Simulated assay, not measured.
Amino acid sequence: MFVLNAIIVDDEEFARSSLYFLLQEYCDHVHICGIAKSVSEARALLALHDINLIFLDIAMPIENGFELIPDLKDLNVQVIFTTAYDEYALKAIKANAADYLLKPIDIDELKAAVDKAFRYISLDKNSAADLTKTEKMSISFAEKAEVKKLTLPSAHGSILVDIDEITHITADSNYSIFHLSKGEKITVSRVLKDYEEILPSHQFTRIHKSSIINLNYLKEYNSKNGLEVVLFNGDRIAVSRRRSSDFMEKVKIYTQVKSDK
C-alpha cells in the first residue's frame, strides 16, 4: 500500500492539531507533509511537495477553502473538506471533493473518507484512463460514496428526502418539481441543473432539458411516439433527440453493472 502525502489547511490551531493527532493515530497510510494556516500557505506547500490529499477548511479569512480548488486542476489531488458549517455541503459536492467532514470530526467518518480518497488516487495511479466506461461505472457503484438524501427547501423550512424515493424531477422555469414514489410532489426554487450535478450520475440521468429520471424506476423505453421512457408508476417522459444516445449508453451501463453486482 502506498502512502498518501497530505497537508492540513485550517486557520484554527486546535482544529489543525486535533486532526493531525487523529490522522497519526488512526490513518497510518497518511503522511502529513505540512500544515498551513491559510490558502496562500497551502499553495506554498503544494509547490514544495508532491501532495495526494488535502484536508481543507472552508471558512478562513482572506481566502476561503474553495479558492484553492482552481490551483488543483492539473494535479492528482483529492480534497476532503473539514468544516463546522454544513451549509457548504452542496458547494463541496460541486467541487468534486472526495468527502466532506463536519467538525468535530468523527473518527470512523475520517477513516472512511481517507479510504475513499485512497481508492480514487489508486485508480489514477493504475491508469484510470485505460478503463472502459463500464469499468469506471462499476467502480462508482461499488466504491464511490454518493449523496443519499437531499434537503429540499420548503415554505415552512426544509424537507429531507431519500434519493431512492425520487422517481423523476421535472423543470418548470426556475423551479424543480420532485416526483416521489408514493405520488407526492415537492416544488423547490432551484434549477434542474443544480440537481443534475448533485445526484449520483449512475442512478439519475437527464433525458430532456426539463427531465431527470431515476433509472431504478425505469420500466421500459420505446420509440412509438418518438423516444420515451415509461416508469413503473406509469409516467411517460419524452427523451430529447440530443440526449437519446447518451441515455441509451447510460441504460446499457446501468443494466450491465446491475447484473454484475
Rank of each mutant, 00 (worst) to 15 (best):
L123W: 06
V3R: 13
D130P: 07
V257K: 03
D57R: 04
T170G: 13
A6P: 04
E135C: 09
L227S: 05
S176W: 02
L231K: 00
K111D: 10
D71L: 04
A89L: 12
I253L: 06
Q24N: 14
Q78I: 07
V161H: 04
I69P: 04
I186M: 12
N222G: 05
S122H: 14
E63D: 07
V147I: 09
E41N: 13
N233H: 08
I198N: 00
S240L: 04
I207Q: 03
S173D: 12
D172E: 11
S138N: 15
A15G: 05
N96K: 14
L199S: 05
M137Y: 06
D235Y: 02
H208W: 00
D124N: 13
S245M: 09
D115S: 15
L199V: 01
K116C: 10
A238D: 00
I107N: 14
N76G: 08
K149M: 08
E67Q: 10
A84V: 06
S211G: 08
L199T: 02
E220H: 12
R43Q: 12
E67A: 05
F14V: 15
V161I: 13
Y120S: 15
S259Q: 08
D106F: 06
D194W: 01
L4F: 10
S127D: 15
Q24M: 13
Y26R: 12
H31T: 13
I212R: 01
S17E: 11
K209H: 08
D246K: 01
H208Y: 03
S210R: 03
D108Y: 10
L131S: 05
K94R: 15
H179Q: 06
Y254D: 03
E25S: 15
C33H: 10
V9C: 05
R190I: 00
S189A: 10
R206I: 00
V9P: 00
I80C: 01
L180D: 05
A155V: 10
V77D: 00
